[in-house]
Write a protein that binds this DNA or RNA. Structure first.
Lengths: 204, 204
DNA sequence: GCGTGTGAAACAATTCACAGCG
DNA sequence: CGCTGTGAATTGTTTCACACGC
């Protein structure tokens, strides 16, 4: 627990969290690992093992208290607070993302929008003025931004990602259809619909 | 090879494919497992092991012929042809997806748009008339659609997914922020930006 | 009895390291 | 030489099965 849990476990925690949040909103008070696992698509044993990496949250003979477990996972993931996020790229995808209500509902607030196209700088999208990337580092610091969403064309994505890392970003969500090569201490999640589709066609 | 390769390998193939396509377009003819692996973020040994599940594609002492390996992976993934795709959900997300040029560039064509909102049925988005889901099975068959993109609100996503399975869909790309529970023979990829963000905040 | 937490066992994925071939 | 393809070794993940406490 002093060192980090495996990546694969960390990536499942948000799924548990979402199912628990849904259950809590419905007023369900208790759930077993079997039932929660079924809803998320993992085995009961795996769910218990995953949670055991972070502590003991259940009650023997009973199960897990939904609200308590939800709050514990929120704490573990550090999503028990608001995160400010920078959006890089004010194209069609950027427009869709800045208005994507699901981010806000889960306490991720796009705070600042950057683009390097002079025609876009100064325009307003989603209520935010598009900024040049010139003073990137300073702006991120001033706005307390630690996460960036990369929504720029593939052919400039690596360069922009390098700039973000240079500016101190340690976590980023990449929507560009390209594999970024970045230092190990930068955490990248890749949203890659085409790769996802290409993986499913294999099975058809 | 007569049975299926592991999921985790299949999900890496699209990354190899994309890097190879980029290299081919630049005119590079040969690449080593070391260099291709570096670009995709996997070890040279892993890349070679992955490919070895499907055949022998390299040349000893030399490396891989870029165009040849690209075409082989296209064949393995069955993306050496066009796929017709149905989009379910004509909301803001659906609008963004139907105009997402990256799908088309990689030969996934959204062919048909469904929505159950009477106010949307009959309207046109991305050049396509929004249809009711009443004759879902028949329409999918008529249009030779085998893949669906689910872009409906979370609270109806499970029901709509059940309807799609009922209509014969075996592969789907889920954009709804919910874990779908579906039969094992249905292949689901989940696009889940919030879960991705929640996983990276763990490390910050 | 029921369901968690967890060592032990089984299984899966990755890396090592080298034979073999151009 | 250099680099692939691949068994063997290692490392990582999942499942099993049961002691323990409610």
């Amino acid at each position: 627990m002093s060192t980090h849990a495996p990546d694969i476990v960390v990536r499942r925690l948000p799924l548990y969290l979402r199912a628990l949040t849904l259950l809590a909103d419905r007023g369900q008070e208790i759930i077993s690992s079997r039932e929660l696992g079924r809803r998320v698509g993992v085995s009961a044993a795996q769910l218990r093992k995953d949670l055991s990496l972070f502590g003991e949250f259940g009650r023997q003979g009973l199960g897990y208290e939904v609200v308590y477990l939800r709050d514990q996972i929120r704490r573990i993931l550090q999503v028990d607070r608001i995160w400010h996020v920078a959006l890089i790229g004010a194209g069609a995808l950027g427009h869709a993302l800045v208005n994507y209500p699901t981010f806000t509902r889960w306490d991720f607030f796009i705070n600042t929008v950057f683009d390097n196209d002079p025609a876009k700088i100064g325009t307003i999208i989603g209520g935010l003025t598009v900024r040049s990337m010139d003073r990137l580092g300073k702006t991120l610091q001033a706005q307390h931004i630690e996460i960036a969403i990369l929504a720029v064309p593939a052919d400039v994505a690596q360069q922009v990602a390098d700039d973000l890392v240079e500016a101190g970003i340690k976590a980023l969500l990449n929507y560009a259809p390209i594999s970024l090569v970045l230092p190990d201490d930068v955490h990248v999640s890749h949203i890659d619909p085409v790769a996802s589709l290409q993986a499913v066609t294999y099975y058809l």
